[in-house]
Nucleic acid binder design. Structure first.
Lengths: 84, 84
DNA sequence: GGCGATTTGTACGTATGTATT
DNA sequence: CAATACATACGTACAAATCGC
């Protein structure tokens, strides 16, 4: 498996497609710790760097990832949703 | 070939004339993938931007084109009409 | 501490569609 | 029909932070 390149004719915006795909990869356990760099993700998905930035912003706001300048982007530690 | 400029005295509204002409250009194979931008089409046809917008709306509702913000307008992939 | 490589952060210009006045 | 503001997208360049040597 890998990325599903962004579909220019898709219903969602490119940055939404990227965000959703990365979210799936995280929730599927395909990405467990460190994400690829934003620029390599841009190449993978065939979109511009700024589009990946936008997608990352969405995922940050979802609490799914944590970004640190100079270090990289990491999967956020999950809180147990329903411990009972 | 190219555009047939809109006739202000024509029987149809300007946006209908534009829509029909673009439809012909698509069905004739003159436009196969990406359409010119709405702004340049407005210049080509000598009409206002909003008139082209209106024409595009008609073509979208006909299922002839697909429009994506920030990317452009594309000829819709044709569904096979009668597969059996 | 310096230096280079890597990575995120910021800024700018251009193109395009969307929406409003 | 004209003008304006806005959102998305691409491309480029440079700055800032981090890490390994």
């Amino acid at each position: 498996m890998g990325v599903s390149p962004v579909d220019p004719l898709g219903a969602d915006f490119a940055y939404v497609q990227v965000a959703n795909n990365i979210a799936v990869r995280i929730e599927a356990g395909e990405i467990t710790h460190k994400l690829p760099s934003e620029r390599s993700l841009a190449e993978e998905y065939g979109v511009a760097y700024q589009t990946v930035r936008h997608a990352m912003k969405v995922l940050r706001e979802r609490g799914l990832i944590i970004t640190r300048q100079g270090r990289g982007t990491f999967v956020a530690p999950r809180r147990d949703p329903a411990p009972g």
